[in-house]
Design a binder for these strands. Structure first.
Lengths: 350, 350
DNA sequence: CTGTTAGCGCATTCAC
DNA sequence: GTGAATGCGCTAACAG
């Protein structure tokens, strides 16, 4: 017994024949164009298509029209809530414009990022959105820019999320300002001996947040010495290990700022595992306001970034749907959020 | 001054001309085929391509070959860690086979799911992976199956994640068995008065877990009465509200089982907000073992599903890369994980 | 092994 | 308005 022969999908040609009209008429009545086809014909075509289970072959359409309906999104790690929230926003906005989004991950490797961009160009996406944070000093950065420029030269559009990546469109995250505001708020709560757990030095987002935080502290006359800064992976594990390292050093601390929430979550767990009560013995703050930080104990103080909006923004910026037509950069406002992880210091300190 | 004219991307034709060879030779040396082209020619072609910044137009390639390198992944909500973890697995496995994955979200609407599948068919993906859990009694289910069957008839392959969706390939999640084992473990710890916060009745995953849990309890002679079962949204908020409802009812409970971790997280927060200490006053357990449940307090007891593996599995199942060639269904083993949210009852109860 | 030619499925310009 | 013919970028026979 032979397996059922796999028929190939119905083509526009089939539909036209079934409806007894020409290929051209079928095309016109099914897919856009300056519609000027007799309603009765149109109906017959639509019905024939229905009967045959016809679906436009987007690839073929793309080849014929020379343009696609694809947007490529490149993230470091889709399982990271930071990126998955942004992805949700991008996908949502894309849906509104009838665009399909393909997602690729780089695992935070600049090399893979470059490879990915190159591979994705084969898709001839209408736009490419790079959500990973930029690194400094990577030998691939330059090639990446070249690749992206070439992509734009050939009709594509790219949008970055994070820091300024001129000449490309960018949804600017105010890392410095947000961190500065947070530092000021925290200083106002009475924290004085702070440590920062940051990411690898090449990650610009980490550096900017560290820098902004330092600035804010300085405004309150609080120093941030090199030994109070610990570099670790930009992940939950990084935050965890960084905290262990900090604790081991015996440095007196009343506050730990982790440059992103995912790390901060690791900080909180590490503290607890070490018998230190987060929020009580030591304050903890993060950055991003990912969904889970409301649910850990104590709830985490952080800097809110409207992640989904950022994703939506990026897409609209790239497709030119953004209301602010001229804007090639859109800054997103951040908001300091104080929760239980950083109670007023004078009230809780021993 | 005029804006730079957007050149169109270099075509294979351009490359061939630049290299002084025929179109066919260029094609052969650049993209696969049974390679048998003179090395010196190949080199010239490759260099020319490099010089022109040529990238294969995957769309055109797809049209010509009649097959694509796309896999479509359909999830309820990409920002939900359950789905984003699965997505990470799918993307990872896809990368190994040089496949690009496009993601679409349904927001848990069967109607949108159907629409999405239809739309995605236009992409002529090699495989379609449906990760959302199935619903029962939806008028769209039938249409969905028809659409998917038609998709398979025309050469596509579909894979489901969750419950049996014959005749389609499925990565089977042992919801019943996992929940049963959990119930048994929990009963063994001394819990007796349990409540379950489950999802909408149409969601099969929720029903299966509820059912399995009930079975496990029954084996210990513990009943699960209707009034001890609360239906809520399949989300964090659902868990939160369901708990409020439960608390308001005044029913005496020593354990709450939420049918998924995301809901369980809501349960824990609701308890805490109500002044009830989770894990101490009332035990809490979930299902899935999403990453964050390790980091909430107390850490959540749950049933572990290797989410990323599930994603990888699904892809391999669909592409036929699965080692177990004959398998059209792959069951994934679950593991009961007891953490701080369900300490031995006799030791903690007042 | 290389070049020529004919499609792939669709959009579109051009006559009718 | 409608249909026939051409081309999009590429692959796959097909000859040389």
């Amino acid at each position: 017994m032979s397996a059922p022969v796999s028929k190939s999908p119905a083509t526009l040609h089939d539909v036209a024949r079934e409806a007894g009209v020409s290929l051209a008429t079928a095309s016109r009545s099914l897919n856009g164009s300056a519609r000027k086809v007799n309603e009765s014909y149109r109906l017959r075509v639509v019905e024939a298509a229905q009967r045959l289970g016809y679906t436009t072959n987007l690839f073929a359409q793309a080849v014929a029209k020379g343009s696609t309906t694809t947007v490529a999104l490149i993230v470091a790690d889709i399982a990271d809530p930071y990126f998955s929230s942004i992805a949700a926003g991008v996908i949502d906005a894309a849906g509104n414009e009838n665009l399909v989004v393909t997602i690729a991950v780089t695992g935070r490797s600049s090399e893979r990022e470059l490879d990915t961009v190159r591979a994705l160009r084969g898709q001839r996406p209408k736009v490419m959105i790079l959500a990973g944070s930029r690194t400094t000093g990577s030998p691939y950065e330059e090639h990446l820019r070249a690749e992206l420029s070439s992509f734009e030269d050939t009709g594509g559009k790219v949008a970055f999320i994070s820091q300024d990546a001129a000449p490309f469109a960018t949804v600017l995250l105010d890392n410095r300002g947000g961190a500065r505001d947070l530092a000021i708020a925290l200083a106002g709560l009475g924290y004085r001996r702070v440590a920062v757990i940051t990411g690898p030095a090449e990650i610009r987002t980490a550096e900017e947040r560290l820098d902004g935080f330092r600035t804010g502290l300085a405004e309150h006359g609080i120093p941030l010495l090199p030994e109070q800064i610990i570099h670790a992976d930009f992940t939950r594990e990084g935050g965890y290990r960084g905290t262990q390292e900090l604790l081991a050093s015996g440095a007196p601390v009343d506050l730990i700022f982790a440059v992103n929430d995912v790390m901060a979550v690791g900080v909180v767990s590490a503290l607890r595992d070490a018998g230190v009560v987060p929020g009580q013995d030591i304050g903890v703050a993060g950055f991003d306001d990912i969904p889970t930080v409301r649910d850990i104990t104590p709830a985490l103080s952080t800097v809110r970034i409207p992640l989904e909006d950022v994703g939506r923004h990026a897409l609209r910026l790239a497709t030119g749907t953004a209301t602010d037509a001229a804007a090639v950069q859109q800054a997103v406002s951040t908001e300091t959020i104080i929760r239980g992880s950083t109670p007023p210091r004078d009230a809780t300190a021993g």
